[in-house]
Design a protein around this nucleic acid. Structure first.
Lengths: 234, 234
DNA sequence: CGTTGTGAAGAGGTTCACAGCA
DNA sequence: TGCTGTGAACCTCTTCACAACG
């Protein structure tokens, strides 16, 4: 039941929280590289990434000792090491399923095709949308899903389908061999062991913000009512 | 420097991890309510929300004792309590800044206007886009940002602007009094103490998936090279 | 009885503070 | 000297296991 893999000589157990921050560091490093900055200290890089320097150093220490004491980190070298660790030195083929408003926006998003990701296929069930060309790709009918996933060697599926379609579509991409899913539909997907799902949910984010907003304003509505009841001795 | 507020009689210190899950529970409860289910056990609700039952019970216990031992939770009552805690029993006015592909998709997204959120304003800098009607609202020029935020009592700003515009726009909404921001631009926003920012970043999500995908395939590229170097005695 | 609510133990993540090294 | 890398302390979150209770 343990997930620790023990593959390779180096410790492969990078904490999940660290993995989630590596892309942020990578982006900050790319910005520095564009400005021809050669070396960066943990303090500077941490500031650019919005974390504190101790956390940054501990995160990087999980990848190895890629810094120089008294100096800092070489930007280009660190870019390479983080990229390699994240698996961005190889190409991943991505399919978008569902080309409504959101799917189109994702398909058109430039940063999407950032290093390492290749948008390989667009799929939809609506005959009106099928055949349309979006960002240089033709939208295929979802009936061809299994075949296209195999032919294009899709490894990541992005689901931008309606909530009701999400689980069935998920089941199909999983049984076609996809083991990484980015889900924009507002449902909790059930997947077999070994399949990774990440969820992006606008409405959940708003609700979390509302909670904090309310707290800043002095706690939940109904508190006064409860207070009155308590005073009343009920 | 402590953030504990000690307002009100009940313990207001709900763990952040719990807050992030309450919207998921709420959605599951709404689904149950639609099917006219009156009572639910922690086991059932947990399954619907994709968590284990101990975690669900602990989460709910932070809100109060709203269950009945031997029976479970009353669906409608729990919906109300969670909604109240999240601040969804009042209305929050939301503004979307930036109406490119993504901004339009967000403006058109139905679930966006889910209970508690009112899309109150759309803003863009592009004169071609300004004046356009999207989902019943007219896009206003960003020059009117300060005025509109005040007039519409905007409490949450959604930023769907290009990366280069994100920080300046953020500064403007913050100085207009907004203290909750949902950021879709791929930058780390700097904000004053007391302002909450949540980030949605497609490319980061893909990179995290790539990391796990690579691990399933047997670890990072370059491991063999390192291995050879080690054998070589370098 | 069956299920909640919760202390206690455990796991994971963050921060501190400084030894170790270029 | 200045910055990295890291043990140790601390904190947060999760899970267990069971007492409490309708």
């Amino acid at each position: 039941m343990t997930r620790r893999s023990t593959l390779g000589a180096r410790n492969r157990g990078i904490p999940e929280a660290t993995v989630a921050r590596l892309p942020v560091y990578l982006r900050a490093l790319h910005t520095l590289a564009e400005r021809d900055i050669v070396t960066v200290s943990s303090e500077e890089l941490a500031a650019a990434a919005g974390v504190n320097s101790a956390k940054l150093r501990k995160d990087l220490s999980h990848l190895g000792s890629y810094g120089t004491r008294g100096v800092g980190y070489e930007v280009q070298y660190l870019v390479y090491q983080i990229s390699r660790e994240l698996g961005l030195t190889q190409d991943w083929s991505v399919a978008i399923v569902g080309l409504g408003n959101l799917g189109r926006a994702l398909a058109g998003y430039g940063g999407f095709a950032s290093r390492g990701f290749r948008m390989a296929a667009l799929l939809d069930a609506d005959p009106v949308i099928v055949g349309e060309r979006i960002n240089g790709l033709t939208v295929e009918h979802i009936d061809k899903l299994e075949q296209i996933i195999a032919d294009c060697a899709i490894s990541i599926a992005v689901l931008a389908v309606p909530a009701s379609a999400a689980q069935p579509v998920c089941d199909r991409v999983v049984s076609s061999g996809v083991t990484s899913i980015l889900n924009f539909a507002p449902v909790v997907l059930a997947v077999p062991e070994g399949v990774d799902v990440r969820k992006v949910d606008l409405s959940i984010e708003l609700q979390i913000l509302a909670f904090h907003e309310q707290r800043k304003a002095g706690g939940p509505a109904g508190v006064e009512q409860e207070y009155l009841e308590a005073v009343d001795g009920s």
